[in-house]
Design a protein around this nucleic acid. Structure first.
Length: 812
RNA sequence: GGGAGCGUGGCGGAAUUGGUAGACGCACUAGAUUUAGGAUCUAGCGCCUUCGGGUGUGGGGGUUCGAGUCCCCCCGCUCCCACCA
């Protein structure tokens, strides 16, 4: 019978669904394993990136299940978001309808891949049963002082007409629209992620199973700096200018004070000074892209204000300068040109003093650029001779005594702005009294739902222009307030969905099953979420712990970031026209072949180049597997117990190969090294073909079939299930068992050692018996004609023998 | 500018973690089968070679009996962050 993947795959997908075998057992005493892949946005069509992501997760889930774990492997939909609104405008469909249709279409496509999900736990974040808990959670954060409303400059995307979080601004542009982001002053809701900056930073230390890359990205994003704030007295005034510095040791090198264009003093000065107000305008026009920043010249304007150096009492000029950020530190710095490159450039331009205070050799040098390495203090009175670290402490202490400095720690991390001026999102459960005070929506009024009828043809937020929705009425029909018309950033939904999967139908946000299942043991997704989604999810879990709702602070124990799927060296995209449609490929080759190709062709974490010929190779492998096993299916046999010392040589070799492969795959699959697992399966299959040509030991071949089907099952689930059934061998479900190997048989393998002469490999020789001594081997080797020629007339001065590996003969 | 990572055949990639480099697959070559193509099977496949061997994991140096693997210096590539004081 020919291998007919279409029938087989349909049959087993239906079988799995009907039998619910992939739903975890509630009363199980087995150890739990929670495996999750980042859930998709329901665009309507799966792409190769999804295929790869979910294939990786599925192999892990199937493997863990077969090893006896109670596996939670759910799937859901990140269902709020802008494409639904764009479709609504373009095609005149309701976002909800569009989204639900896409979900159904994508579910069909995912099911065609043969993924072992527990679909009974499916969640859609746009369902009120989901977001009601989010609204409640937000109010809890609000009551705990972790959510607040603030008027501030925010990143405004002029194309998408909405606010973006810092994390969503990439290279000065909106992460979706690519439009140049503007700064706009708006009143927005924020979550106090900065309250957790230190916890989130420390927590990274517990994430030993995360990729180093992601840890370092998060660390950089949190951006902790240890330093001090120092106050400078303005001469002729009682006012002070406070600056932040990580280098208080270089205080004697201070030659100017720099203020951001948005600093209060700058703004004040601009009011009565045209030159200054013009300069500030110029600063604000500057671009923020990489190229702009690299080219940007450091410019400034002298304010004619002078401050007093806290030790030398020298007068120091105050400049407004374009390279000082209002968003970091105090928006003001002291410039030390000798030891900071930016200050150095600035000083050169404006002829400011460059005074060296740190030196590698206790001497002044000609500085052509800032000296930023280690050294000792010079030209610094009481600091001279100290190390940088000691000098920092001394300076802070002395200024602290004068009330002019404090130790200070700053973070780059900003609070998370969650307000979005969009319709298709979770309504923020707040309304404003007629006096404008924010009032949380009462618990029994939740969820706040979106109005079904909505007009997208008006400018701005459709909720805002809705005729009635925003009016909050009392029981007697009086208007008592106005709803918040902003909705949440959709990252809000994805920051806790993993928790909801533990008890997706619970009346509460989650129930005691949260404790049973969390944390997620293995989380798989694209590295593009290294900061946004993964940082917010960690923040939420930390916050849940603080609110007493979670027993853990870190939601994801092990993280794997899979590489992208490329075609012609570039990420697949519609605009490049280099996409490959997974559905088409599945139709042509079957899901098993697609799974094998995508897992075999590159290690999980690396980018993968799509290759039409490669999938044919995968398909060929499965056909060969089908053929030889199908033709010999009745010989299946769960063991081969004959004494290994009595069987023929090639039988012994085959048996050892089977055990060795079992050992290798058991090890590699645990480490997610699926490419080498499949290579090992191919090798074993090739071995089986060669064996079959010359041997007819049915019992042994039957054992090969028994082992092979189980080993291949996580990768090639449809075919292995079909063959297992055809074998009518036993009632055990192949999806719930894993084969064993016998170490003592593996050790019976013939040992071939390398023969080196002066460290150069000259060939190899088999060990004649188990504990053959190095003396015996070297004697044997030196007599053998293969090696004697290298030793002729030479004196053997040393022999190095590595057991079962090699012998190295050193000659002179 | 700061940080992280990576350089192995024509290509994707292996290498038990310091011990026979190139497993497995793709492509390619030859042969078998076939009217032909496709499919399948068999064999070959780093480079050079006077067929003895030489050489080879980006380049150079070092440690070692032995280095793709460890250390130092270059060269190149990728990703992330970025006037963050």
């Amino acid at each position: 019978m020919e291998y007919n993947f279409l029938d087989i795959e349909n049959k087993w997908q239906k079988n799995w669904e009907d039998s619910s075998i992939f739903c975890p057992d509630k009363n199980s005493k087995k150890p739990k394993y929670y495996i999750l892949e980042m859930f998709p946005y329901p665009s309507g069509k799966i792409h190769m990136g999804h295929v790869r992501n979910y294939a990786i997760g599925d192999v892990s889930a199937r493997f863990k299940r077969s090893q006896g774990f109670n596996v939670l492997h759910p799937m859901g939909w990140d269902a709020f978001g802008m494409p639904a609104e764009n479709a609504a405008i373009k095609n005149n469909v309701h976002p909800k309808e569009w989204t639900y249709e896409n979900i159904e279409a994508m579910k069909v496509q995912l099911k065609q891949m043969g993924l072992s999900y527990d679909w009974s736990r499916e969640i859609r974040t746009c369902d009120k049963e989901y977001f009601v808990h989010e609204q409640k959670f937000f109010l809890e954060l609000y009551n705990a002082g972790l959510a607040y409303k603030k008027e501030s400059f925010v990143n405004w995307d002029p194309v998408d007409q909405t606010v973006l979080a810092n994390e969503q601004v990439v290279d000065g542009k909106g992460w979706r629209s690519g439009a140049l982001v503007e700064q706009k002053k708006l009143s927005q809701w924020f979550l106090k992620i900065t309250d957790f900056a230190e916890d989130l930073l420390k927590g990274l230390g517990d994430l030993s199973l995360w990729p180093k890359k992601v840890l370092s990205m998060q660390e950089n994003w949190i951006g902790k700096s240890i330093g001090a704030t120092i106050k400078f007295k303005i001469i002729g005034s009682s006012e002070l200018i406070e600056v932040f510095t990580t280098r208080p040791d270089t205080i004697y090198g201070a030659s100017f004070i720099g203020l951001s264009a948005d600093h209060i003093i700058s703004i004040k000065l601009a009011k009565n000074n045209k030159k200054i107000s013009d300069f500030i305008k110029i600063c604000k026009q500057a671009g923020t892209t990489n190229v702009d920043l690299e080219k940007a010249e450091k410019i400034g304007i002298n304010t004619n204000i002078l401050v007093e150096h806290p030790f030398t009492k020298e007068q120091i000029p105050v400049y407004i300068a374009n390279f000082i950020l209002i968003n970091y530190g105090t928006g003001a710095i002291f410039g030390c040109p000798a030891h900071d490159q930016r200050d150095f450039d600035f000083a050169k331009k404006y002829n400011l003093r460059i005074k060296q205070v740190v030196s590698p050799n206790n001497k002044e040098q000609e500085l052509v650029e800032a000296f930023v390495d280690k050294g000792t203090m010079i030209n610094s009175e009481f600091l001279d001779g100290l190390t940088i670290e000691d000098a920092k402490l001394r300076v802070i202490k002395k200024l602290k005594d004068k009330n002019l400095a404090e130790s200070s720690i700053k973070y780059k991390l900003r609070d998370w702005g969650v307000s979005r001026q969009r319709y298709w999102g979770t309504p923020i459960p707040i309304y404003y009294s007629n006096d404008g005070d924010p009032i949380p929506v009462e618990d029994n009024e939740l969820p706040v739902e979106l109005p079904k009828k909505i007009d997208f043809n008006k400018n701005g937020n459709p909720l805002d222009s809705h005729p009635t929705w925003k009016h909050v009425k009392s029981k007697d029909g009086k208007i008592i307030g106005t709803r918040e018309t902003d909705t949440f950033d959709t990252f809000f939904e994805s920051s806790w969905y993993f928790a909801r999967f533990c008890s997706p139908q619970s009346e509460k946000m989650f129930d005691k099953q949260y404790k049973d299942w969390m944390p997620v043991d293995l989380y798989i997704g694209g590295v593009e979420h290294a900061i946004l989604h993964l940082l917010y999810s960690r923040f939420f879990t930390h916050a849940l712990k603080r609110l007493g709702k979670s027993h853990i602070t870190e939601p994801f124990k092990k993280l794997v970031t899979q590489g992208m799927v490329l075609k012609d060296g570039a990420k697949m995209s519609k605009s490049l026209g280099n996409t490959v449609d997974p559905q088409e490929i599945i139709r042509k080759y079957g899901a098993d072949s697609v799974r094998v190709f995508i897992l075999f062709s590159a290690p999980v974490e690396k980018d993968l180049e799509w290759n039409d010929k490669g999938i044919e190779g995968a398909s060929r492998f499965i056909k060969r597997m089908w053929k030889i096993i199908y033709e010999n299916i009745e010989s299946i046999n769960s063991s081969f117990n004959k004494d290994i010392n009595t069987v023929k040589d090639d039988e012994k070799a085959f048996l050892i190969k089977i055990h060795k492969t079992t050992e290798k795959i058991t090890r590699d699959i645990e480490n997610l090294q699926f490419n080498t697992c499949i290579a090992a399966l191919m090798e074993l299959l090739n071995f089986a073909y060669k064996f079959k040509e010359k041997n007819n030991n049915e019992k042994l071949f039957g054992f090969f079939i028994y082992q092979f089907l189980q080993l291949a099952n996580p990768f090639i689930p449809h075919v292995t299930n079909e063959l297992w059934e055809l074998a009518k061998f036993n009632k055990k479900n192949i999806n719930l068992i894993w084969p064993e190997y016998d170490q003592s048989i593996i050790e019976k393998d013939e040992v071939i050692i390398a023969v080196q002469i002066n460290g150069k490999t000259r060939g190899s020789t088999p060990l004649l018996f188990e504990d053959e001594s190095d003396e015996d081997i070297s004697l044997r080797v030196s007599k053998s004609k293969d090696f004697a020629k290298f030793l002729e007339g030479k004196e053997i001065i040393k022999k190095i023998y590595v057991k079962n590996r090699l012998i190295n003969i050193i000659i002179k």
